[in-house]
């Protein structure tokens, strides 16, 4: 999927563990893991808001659009 979730990068910058972030955001470890590994199909605005608040960042710091090779080839 061309949307990359950079939660792990922000966690490393803030030196925050997975358990601590899950507790602050109010989601389970399993769901946070799904988000971190890029398996999630969608993210709610309220989850995104809670993540930005906990990690003190902007949505753009957490999500990134990367063109795939196929899309580049079609250009």
């Amino acid at each position: 999927m061309p949307i990359i979730v950079n939660v792990d990068v922000m966690m490393a910058r803030r030196k925050m563990s997975l358990t601590e972030l899950a507790g602050r955001v109010g989601i389970t470890l399993a769901n946070l893991s799904i988000l971190k590994t890029g398996k999630a199909k969608a993210i709610r605005f309220e989850t995104l808001e809670a993540l930005c608040k906990a990690l003190d960042c902007q949505p753009g710091d957490l999500l990134e659009y990367v063109e795939t090779e196929l899309e580049l080839a079609h250009r």
Partner: peptide, 8 residues
């Protein structure tokens, strides 16, 4: 259902 479950 799968989409709902994978919506965080």
């Amino acid at each position: 259902r799968q989409e709902h479950e994978l919506t965080i």
